[in-house]
Amino acid sequence: MKKTLVIAITFLLVSCGASIQSNFTEQLKPLSMDNKVAFLDLQHPIPENAKKIGEAKFGDSGFSTNCDFNTNLINARKLARSNGANIVKVSKKTTPDLWSSCYRITVEFYYFEGDVTKLAQYQLQIN
């Protein structure tokens, strides 16, 4: 009985985070914290000469917490920086609903040689 309880509690604790699946076709030199990363939402166009280097899906593991839109983007920015991408483009977004309290998003990662601060982009909401 105790063993089953320990396994159940461990399962619940491990499965509280949002699931993230990423795939990078190219890994560039990681960006520093000084390098800006642009967030392009569904309506924002990708610059013409940006190079796609990967993608990721942020989902719900069943007991997920901290999986709102901004938190997912912050996690996407960490992935982007570590792989050399300076644009995070949301390509699919599912809002929380009856089945999940999480935002489920698919993002693409791009490297752009221009100034990403000049792109029309989503601004993170600060609470």
Rank of each mutant, 00 (worst) to 15 (best):
L73I: 02
I7K: 05
E55V: 00
A85V: 00
R81G: 01
D60P: 11
H44W: 00
L79D: 12
N49R: 11
S82W: 02
Y110C: 06
L31G: 15
E113K: 13
K29L: 03
C102Y: 07
R81Y: 01
E108R: 00
T4G: 07
K2M: 15
V14G: 13
A18D: 09
S61F: 11
K2Q: 09
V88F: 08
S15T: 08
C102V: 02
A80V: 01
K92I: 02
N35A: 07
K52L: 03
P47W: 03
R81A: 08
A56F: 01
V116E: 13
T65N: 15
T94Y: 11
I7V: 14
I7C: 11
S91L: 00
K51G: 12
F11N: 11
Q21N: 15
Y103I: 06
Q123M: 06
G62N: 06
W99I: 07
P45N: 11
I9V: 12
R81C: 03
P30I: 00
W99K: 15
N49G: 09
I46Q: 07
S32Y: 02
C67K: 07
V6K: 15
Q125N: 14
S19T: 13
Q123C: 06
G84F: 00
D68H: 04
N66G: 13
I53E: 12
P45F: 01
W99Y: 14
K78N: 10
S15C: 15
I53P: 12
V14K: 06
L28A: 07
K51Q: 15
V90Y: 07
S22V: 01
A120P: 10
I7Y: 07
T71N: 04
T25F: 06
E55Q: 11
A50D: 04
D41M: 10
V90F: 12
K36W: 01
V90I: 13
N66Q: 10
D97S: 06
G17V: 02
S61C: 13
T117M: 06
Q123S: 14
I9L: 14
L31Q: 07
E26N: 09
P30D: 05
I53Y: 10
V6P: 08
A80G: 10
W99F: 08
S32R: 13
Y122K: 08
L13P: 15
I105P: 08
Y122Q: 10
V116K: 14
S100L: 03
E108G: 02
D115F: 02
E55G: 05
L12E: 12
D97I: 00
P47Y: 02
F112N: 05
S82D: 13
R104G: 11
T4I: 07
D68Q: 10
I9N: 11
N35G: 14
N66A: 09
T71G: 02
M1P: 13
K118I: 09
L31I: 02
V88D: 11
K52N: 10
E26S: 14
